[in-house]
Design a protein around this nucleic acid. Structure first.
Length: 170
DNA sequence: TTAGTGATATCC
DNA sequence: GATATCACTAAA
């Protein structure tokens, strides 16, 4: 079952843990379908979240985060790694889910590399796209929480908040 | 541990 | 305009 737009229209703190265990499907131009279960996500929420791209206000680069839910927001990191985010929540609320790793590939950039995901998917609507979408196969997982990674600069509070969600098979 | 890589933010 | 920073990975 494909995930609907309503799924992403809720607060990121509801969407992120529920996204864990869902299946990311990527259809390449030659018709090949790649699928991988998402095993780890992170929530980024609002301008007050120092770890969020939007913490320094709205810019051209993070504009998509403020947009409608279900839109894919790509970030090029360290010049060579694509990280994939999905925008959630209401319009004008900068929040989104980072897909941090899949069942077969640990590491956010490995996931996108394997899936052939790059800047060309920026702005794609994940509920309407023919190139990439998410499916729910009904399988349930335990979701454990942990502090987010890679935001040492964000300060003690935002560093310690448990907005990282990891799947654990039941 | 360190190099590689490039967009963006921040500083002149 | 320049440079400092960054949610990473692979190779050593």
């Amino acid at each position: 079952m494909k995930l609907s737009e309503e799924f992403f229209q809720r607060d990121v703190l509801e969407v992120a843990p529920e996204l864990v265990g869902k299946i990311l499907v990527r259809r390449l131009d030659d018709g090949t379908e790649l699928r991988e279960r998402i095993t780890e996500t992170e929530a980024y929420r609002g301008e007050e979240d120092k770890g969020c791209y939007a913490s320094k206000g709205r810019t051209k680069a993070n504009e998509l985060l403020y947009g409608r839910s279900g839109i894919i927001f790509m970030r090029l990191c360290y010049g060579m790694h694509w990280l994939m985010n999905i925008v959630t929540g209401e319009e004008d609320q900068p929040q989104g889910v980072l897909l941090r790793c899949g069942e077969l590939h640990n590491g956010p950039a490995k996931l996108t590399k394997y899936m052939n995901i790059d800047g060309s998917l920026e702005g794609e609507e994940i509920c309407r796209s023919e190139r990439i979408w998410l499916e729910d196969d009904g399988e349930k997982f335990n979701v454990i929480t942990a502090p987010r990674v890679g935001i040492d600069y964000a300060g003690e509070y935002w560093k310690s908040v448990l907005w990282r969600f990891i799947a654990e098979r039941k």
